Amino acid sequence: MELYFLGTNAGLPTTQRNVTSVALRMLEERRCSWLFDCGEATQHQILHSPLKLNRLEKIFITHMHGDHVFGLPGLLSSRASQEGTSPLTVYGPQGLKAFLEVTLSATQSRIEFGLEIVEHSGGLIFEDKQIKVEAAALEHRIESYGYRITEKDRPGSLNMELLQEWGVRPGPEYGKLKGGESITANGRTITSGEVLGPPKRGRIVTILGDTRPTSGIHPLAEGADMLVHESTFTREFADLAQKYYHSTAEQAANAAKKAGVGELILTHFSSRYKDYEQLQPLLEEARAIFPNTQLAVEHQSYPIRSAQDREKE
């Protein structure tokens, strides 16, 4: 499970950065990717990435500002043109369905795969055996949401040495034991409890839409292994951030510290910061409060590590 950034800029693209979009890659866990926001030219960014449109299972929109949705109709149309056949669900706030239906209809775009559009107002919006997604309102000029993606606990590791000692070779029996079943091998009944370690805690990643500091951030981010938080300005422009319903790097770091997250990724940078070097003050500002902070860099992967994995490093 990892994040892959396709766009990190706020409002307008620059020659260095595209507007907002980030993919959650879960190839080992689900053999698919999910997309969070889809600013203009996201599909072009995907052409320069390892992502595949036919592996795209879900899209989550945080809010309906253009720099977060203008790339969506084109991406859906391209997916259909590339013979994508698997169903796709798009989640987002009120207005998403009308935006897509009018745009796709006016352009006579033929979407022949199963497309479901789900408008929500927060709460639990998706759950299956592996994962659940919750949303909560933030504080922006329009309705804006953050998403909390929780991976459910996974089975522990098998005691390979003990299994080999008992003459159980790798094969279907391993899968049964991982699934909690008992097996019989060499006249011996082996229960999963004898050879299976404690469950591995599922990872949690929180991805926020545009927002000013607000109490709604904490329940979304509490205990998350990774928090993606907008960081449009440095503290020098705190008044501007407040006026336009955005956050500074310092405010993002304070939210991460309060929520006890594992890692903080800053994104959604003002175009006043032209290149990576000019973004360093945001990084320094955040790290002074929350040291485990990184800047989101486009076409770079960020593995989502559990607390156990981080402790091993």
Rank of each mutant, 00 (worst) to 15 (best):
V195N: 04
S109W: 01
K52D: 14
G11D: 10
S81Y: 13
K176H: 13
S271L: 03
S231C: 15
R212G: 08
L72Y: 11
S81N: 13
L115G: 05
D37I: 04
L124I: 03
H299M: 10
S86P: 06
L88A: 08
L88C: 08
E313Y: 06
D210K: 14
R31A: 14
V69G: 04
S78I: 12
H299S: 05
E173V: 09
E28Y: 12
A288M: 14
R30Y: 08
R30F: 03
Q308R: 11
I59M: 08
G193Q: 08
W166Y: 07
A241K: 01
D210E: 15
Q130F: 13
S270R: 06
A307M: 09
A255D: 11
P170W: 12
R110D: 03
T14C: 02
T103Y: 12
T206V: 00
I131R: 12
A224G: 02
F269I: 06
H44D: 15
P303G: 08
P170R: 05
I149T: 06
E151V: 09
T150H: 11
A41C: 11
V168T: 02
I190S: 14
E311D: 12
E181D: 13
I204K: 09
G74P: 07
G95Y: 03
E40M: 10
L47N: 15
D153Y: 11
H218T: 14
Q130Y: 13
R17T: 14
S157E: 15
V297W: 02
L283M: 04
S109H: 08
I183W: 12
N292G: 04
I59P: 07
T150E: 14
A224F: 04
Q278L: 03
I131C: 05
S271T: 13
G262Y: 05
F60S: 00
E40R: 12
N254E: 13
I59D: 10
L266Q: 02
N159K: 03
L282G: 02
F233N: 14
G260W: 07
V261F: 07
S86W: 10
G71T: 10
K132D: 11
I190T: 15
K178D: 08
G187F: 02
R25W: 10
E2R: 09
S109T: 06
K132T: 06
V22M: 05
L51K: 09
